[in-house]
Amino acid sequence: MTPQEFDAFYAASFSRLTGQLYALTGNWSEAQDVVQEAFIRAWDRRRTFDPGNAPEAWIRTTARRLALSRWRRLARGLHLAGRHHRQEPPTVEPPTEEHLTLVSALRDLPEAQRSALVLHHMCDLSVEQVAAETGATVSAVKSRLARGRTALAARLADQSPTSEEGKLRV
């Protein structure tokens, strides 16, 4: 991939990838940071990328791993400091109430289910592609999707507004 092709790829996919990572992490600034870091790492490897080689999947996987590593470091640091409470990161107001409700419900799911749901439904990856990105088997991804959908539907039903005009469209 030439520098010009990489620039075009960056311009076309940064916002989409940041939105996907926001759904995974629940923190807008964290999503921007890890996607940016993934693009920095990709710059050194750009010659090995080719548009048919799914460079977006590489960026998304790298960003997801960076976010997980940051979360582990933070959790380890909090544990070592003797803190046993979880501090909520500052949130950025989403464009709609529905978006906030969805991200909140996703945040409550186990990481494996959340990743499977976001990669499959938001990133439009097939079950096989999700399995390849996460290192899970196809049957494990199908199970995570089924369990995740059930849990997400229950959480969204619990969080939906009671007024007719404010109901979530799921």
Rank of each mutant, 00 (worst) to 15 (best):
R47V: 09
I59W: 04
H84N: 06
V34E: 04
W58R: 11
V103P: 02
I59N: 10
E165F: 04
P51H: 12
S115L: 07
E165M: 04
G148E: 06
E37L: 07
A116Y: 03
L80N: 15
R107H: 15
L152H: 07
R155E: 14
V34Q: 00
Q4D: 08
S69F: 07
A140Y: 07
T96Y: 08
A151M: 07
G26D: 04
E56T: 10
E128M: 07
M1Q: 00
A38L: 04
A54N: 11
S104F: 05
P90I: 08
P3G: 10
L119W: 02
P94E: 10
R107N: 15
E97Q: 15
D158E: 15
R45K: 06
R86E: 11
Q20S: 05
L80D: 14
L68D: 13
A112W: 08
T150F: 09
R60P: 12
V130R: 02
L102M: 12
P161R: 07
L156H: 09
E30Y: 03
P3S: 12
K142V: 10
R73Q: 09
S104R: 08
L100R: 12
G82F: 04
R86W: 13
L156T: 12
E164I: 13
R47S: 14
P110T: 02
S139G: 08
A31F: 00
S15C: 03
T96C: 09
R46V: 02
T96G: 08
L119K: 03
T150I: 14
V141W: 00
G148P: 08
H121Q: 14
Q87Y: 12
L24T: 00
A11R: 03
V34W: 03
T91G: 09
A12N: 10
H99E: 13
M122G: 02
V127I: 01
F9V: 02
A11E: 02
A131M: 08
T134E: 14
H120L: 01
W58P: 13
Q159R: 15
G26R: 00
L21E: 08
R169Q: 06
D7W: 00
S15N: 05
F6Y: 10
Q36N: 13
T2K: 07
L117H: 01
E93S: 06
P95K: 02
R41M: 06
S163T: 14
W71L: 15
E37R: 04
T162D: 06
P161L: 07
L168T: 03
R149T: 13
T96W: 05
S143F: 13
A75D: 15
T61F: 15
D44R: 05
T18D: 04
E165T: 05
G77V: 09
L80V: 11
E133R: 05
D44T: 08
P55H: 01
H99R: 15
T91I: 11
P94H: 08
T48C: 09
H79Q: 11
L109D: 10
P51Q: 11
D124T: 11
L74H: 12
G148M: 06
A11K: 01
H121D: 15
Q20P: 03
L168P: 03
Q87L: 12
Q4P: 00
